[in-house]
Amino acid sequence: MKVRNASQLLNGEQSEILGIDYNHPSARRIIEVGFTPGEEIKVIGKSLFDDPIAFSIRGTVIAIRKSEASSIIIR
């Protein structure tokens, strides 16, 4: 199976986080705000050119850049 990341999700689409790319410079803050393996995420909205993307995570909404979303590996 091909590896997918969160930046590829469409508006309204939902998935489960499998892992985070620790090499991404923002990895620590991405995890700190709640993106951890096993959590469900859903795309709430996308700005112009699909960047940044707003995700629902652990009962709140967090906007992150497309490049940061691409470090979140999903099912």
């Binding site: 410079p25 940044p52 707003a54 709140t60 967090i62 850049r65």
Partner: peptide, 11 residues
């Protein structure tokens, strides 16, 4: 510095 944008959109 590496650029980043991580922001909670509060209720």
């Amino acid at each position: 510095d590496h650029s980043s944008f991580i922001l909670e959109l509060p209720t």
